Simulated scan of single mutants.
Amino acid sequence: MTDYAEEQRNELEAIESIYPDSFTVLSENPTSFTITVMSDAGENGETVETLLKFTYVEKYPDEPPLWEIQSQENLEDRDVQEILTLLQQQAEENLGMVMIFTLVTAVQEKLNEIVDAIKTRQEEDKRLKEKEAEEAETKAFQGTVVTIENFLAWKTTFEQEMSEIRKKRQKEEEQVGKYKLTGKQLFETDHNLDTSDIQFLEDTGNSVEVDESLFQDMEDLDLDEDDPDFDPLAMGSDED
């Protein structure tokens, strides 16, 4: 006859020696305890962790223990469900043998796989971002590929813009033409401008008188203007 209590006590002692820092006894009747299971650190130090609670049933190990996940860190709901499924599978495969160490080891391997998957997703995200950045840079360098469709669309927009510019310029020129007259148009519209200068002289009494005596003796002067040494001021001083 199997002594279930003895097998349970022996396994409990072994588990405590294997996991001294993560093993905690919660109760003795029924025997219940927790084990913290943590993955190995990933490349960037990331880890995942879960706190497993086990409870012996009366006929353990011929019957599987009870288990539950009391807490977890960095695990998604999908990961938690996969761990529970894994525990059920391992327990069925190891009926008749003490199995806590086997169950914990399977969970730890699963956590390591999850960390590896996180690393793979991070690398994929990084490559995707790098690819998107390269494509954006290439597109900016090459410009937009011209097709018939986008050329016709650009041509229509360009012609509309040019038409608006011409209309605006024509309107501005018409507005300026209303208020600006040429010199000819000024004389044609105001005939007083024809005699304005004469009237100014007559109104002010200004006249120009010339003293002809100042020029009477100019013909008697022997002026050699071609002489490079010719100095009219010097001549005047010699006569004095």
Rank of each mutant, 00 (worst) to 15 (best):
D21G: 10
S22W: 00
T24P: 00
V25W: 00
S27N: 12
S27V: 00
S32I: 04
T34Q: 09
I35T: 02
T36R: 13
A41C: 05
E43T: 14
N44Y: 10
E46C: 03
E46Y: 08
T47H: 06
V48G: 08
V48C: 10
L51E: 08
K53H: 12
Y56P: 04
Y60I: 05
E63Q: 11
W67H: 12
W67S: 14
E68T: 13
I69W: 05
N74G: 02
N74S: 09
V80E: 06
V80M: 07
Q81T: 13
E82K: 14
T85V: 12
L87T: 10
L87G: 09
Q88D: 15
Q88H: 13
Q90P: 05
Q90K: 15
A91I: 00
E92D: 14
L95N: 08
L95A: 05
G96S: 08
G96H: 06
M99P: 05
V104E: 09
V104M: 04
T105E: 15
T105L: 12
T105P: 07
T105M: 12
L111C: 06
E113M: 09
E113P: 01
E113F: 02
I114M: 12
D116L: 14
A117G: 08
I118W: 06
T120G: 05
T120S: 13
R121T: 02
R121Q: 08
R121I: 03
Q122S: 12
E123L: 07
E124R: 11
E124W: 05
D125M: 12
R127V: 09
K131M: 10
K131R: 13
K131N: 11
K131Y: 11
E135W: 05
E135R: 11
A140H: 06
A140T: 01
V146D: 08
I148W: 07
